[in-house]
Simulated assay, not measured.
Amino acid sequence: MDDQLFRTAMSKFATGVTVIVAEQDGKPHGMTANAFMSVSLDPKLILISVDERARMLPIIEASQKFTVNVLRQEQKQMSMRFAGQIPSEEPFTFDRFEGEPVIQQSLVSLVCNVHNTYVEGDHTLFIGNVTNLRIENGNPLAFYEGGYRTVQA
């Protein structure tokens, strides 16, 4: 099978949209990602997948911490900004939770320490140990067949 056929098949799986944030030298960096999942309840573990070419990869490796911010439907522009689809000259102002940078008004913000790392194919899988979280009400931003969607409760 070719790469495009595989990519098309994977686009048939609807996902939420997250922004992963990690700090380097006191400066937060964000990356839009939909490769995120829950792994374990005891201990509380999640997984994110980061492309080997992503600028975020060495930042997470060095800091050994990251946050996962599940976006609400009103945050599509934010997703596009951190995906590099909308250029922005202005610095982004992050909120702080447990001392770590998070996206304001996200549906969920998870603070994680890197628990384990696996290199698989052209991505690095980070297993994060969730040390704290906060939850807001709202509807999620979704991604399906290469486009943004909304989900109504």
Rank of each mutant, 00 (worst) to 15 (best):
V130H: 03
Y148W: 01
D51F: 00
F6G: 14
M78P: 02
K65W: 07
D95T: 05
S40P: 02
F92T: 00
Y148Q: 03
E61C: 06
T150D: 01
E120Q: 12
I86F: 02
L107M: 07
N129R: 11
N69D: 13
D25R: 09
F13A: 15
R7S: 15
L141K: 04
R53T: 08
Q85P: 00
I46V: 11
E52G: 06
G99P: 02
E90M: 01
N129A: 12
M37Y: 13
I60F: 02
Y148L: 04
M10W: 14
M31G: 10
V21R: 10
N139Q: 10
G121D: 06
I60W: 00
T124V: 14
Q152R: 08
L45E: 03
T124D: 05
N132S: 15
V102R: 11
T67C: 13
D2F: 13
S38L: 04
T131C: 09
F6H: 15
N137F: 02
V68A: 14
N34F: 11
G138A: 11
Q104H: 14
T117S: 15
E74F: 12
S88Y: 00
D95G: 03
T93S: 05
R149Q: 06
A14T: 15
Q75F: 12
V39S: 10
G146T: 07
T131G: 13
L57A: 00
E120P: 05
V21Y: 07
D42H: 09
T150C: 01
K44H: 08
R72Q: 13
R96Y: 05
Q105D: 15
L47S: 06
M10H: 14
T117K: 14
E145P: 02
D51C: 01
M80F: 01
N132E: 11
S79E: 05
V151G: 00
S88W: 00
V50P: 06
A142G: 07
V114G: 10
S38W: 08
Q75V: 13
Q24C: 07
